[in-house]
Design a protein around this nucleic acid. Sequence first.
RNA 1: CGGGGUGUGGCGCAGACUGGUAGCGCGCCUGCUUUGGGAGCAGGAUGUCGGAGGUUCAAAUCCUCUCACCCCGACCA
Length: 563
Amino acid sequence: MRTSKFFIATQKEVPAEAEIVSHRLMLRASLIRRLSAGIYTWLPLGLRVVRKVEAIVREEMNRAGAIELAMPVVQPGELWRESGRWQAYGPELLRFKDRHEREFVIQPTSEEVVTDLARSELKSYRQLPVHFYQIQSKFRDERRPRFGIMRGREFVMKDGYSFHADYRDLEREYHNMYDTYTRIFSRLGLKFRAVAADTGAIGGTGSHEFHVLAESGEDAIAFCPQSDYAANVELAEALSPATRPAAKETMRKVPTPGMTKCEAVAELLKLPLTRTVKAVAVMHDEQFILLLVRGDHELNEIKAQKVIGLFRFATEGEIQRHLHCPAGYIGPVGAKVRMVADRTVAAMADFVCGANQEGYHLAGVNWGRDASEPEVADIRNVVAGDPSPDGKGKLDIVRGIEVGHIFQLRTKYSEAMGATFLDEKGAARPFEMGCYGIGVTRIVGAAIEQNHDARGIIFPAAIAPFSACIVPIGYHKSTAVREAAERVYAELGAAGIDVLLEDREERPGVLFADMDLIGIPHRIVVGERGLAAGNAEYKARRDDKGSDVPLASAAALLLKKLA
RNA sequence: CGGGGUGUGGCGCAGACUGGUAGCGCGCCUGCUUUGGGAGCAGGAUGUCGGAGGUUCAAAUCCUCUCACCCCGACCA
């Protein structure tokens, strides 16, 4: 491809809307343009990257035995009512009516349609297992789209659905997909981590997320450097600490006017935050419950929900009614309500907590003696330094961008929608199902988030819009330069390399800056200076300096680099 | 959905408080010079100031309504 015949619309200045690096660079490098909130046009350069990601995903899915199909973007609301998700999904599901007033949705995912397909096409265990997948546009009406393509409303996803006669076979395919995803993200050239995940609202049992590691990631991942343990922080278990030390202090009341935060109280008493306990008041049905976590810890709502059931935070009025003081001063001492303490809290002695009296806290508090022994459970988020749940070291926490997710759906949809097959004995049984997603367009953003420098994007070779570029200095002035550049260009083209020839009539600085910004991994510069000695210059995008290579072997060198 | 903010040429912004009919940088066009890291000079084009209504002799500027977008939070996977 010649740049003069392609569409490159790079910008020096950054549109004000862009918050994170990848978004800024994608706009500046002319990969995307925003059309509406969370909705983007993929410009030719960006689309090439998307296509390369798709190609790798497709190749590996096919290799793993999955079969590609394409399901409609517009789907009848009826099917969604059948699965129960018409109600369950909420406003993220974009719904509309056609001219006959029939309800439709724009698919955020395709469990309903694929299950409908299975129940009409797959009749016998002899046809199983089957794994269908598609790569196409999805729409989720996010309340707040952000970070450009990373959390857009319209996006491209690879979604696959597998059907099995029994759970064993689903597990087999689940592991097959785990391996396939690992291979896909490795081939994409990304630093990533597979983590155990919560199954969330979609239901089912086993689930893993694949995260591209990046500072700007929206998710926190707990992992153990000493082992292969990794889990979403929402899921990682916080183990019980050693046994509770003996009480040394007597309980005393301290005035803490205006201090409603543990931080303030700890500072006043010159105690570390780890000696304080904070209480969170919640309501489960009409029951008032105190959840207790250490001052420096964070309540994990998902874990707490598993212990006490669905809950909401108590209102100021409810707290007054049950504990007769404002929220900033509540604590376990003398509270005649249900209390659930985090494991860490249960193992504390001589701690500080609210006195259930406005303007006062209690210090030197001990379980059993000053407050009744609480119910104990794991209800907090793990923090860096916590022991790894597998017992093999300490946890570390990194941030990640979720780019893949695999689920064991089991029979949630097949049962809801009556999708059954006949087994060996002629009995009708619901399909065991698995579901596997990869955020194709999000990968583009994640890759840039992980690979860039001050000059722009540094694309991993596997997904660069072009593998290499030739930048002639004086293409329009020097016949020798033009001929040399054209020769290398032809050689690489003949070898099937995606090569870009910079033949725009611009100053060299502009050409260099654009190729760097766009992130082409390899560059050959042909100029009269080097040509005099029969040389061209090779430079990798990541390198600071280039090196001379004989013009005659420039193409061969690139072929070797790209092999 | 709650809170905050912004809409001015293709992009980034100033002008608004104190009303007087719009300006800067980048980009774009023409010419000359320049040509190994986003050139210089000269000339030029481009604005229903998001939209509607109102106040006023006069509105980008003040008022009302409305639309779009951005940020924080909540929500969602």
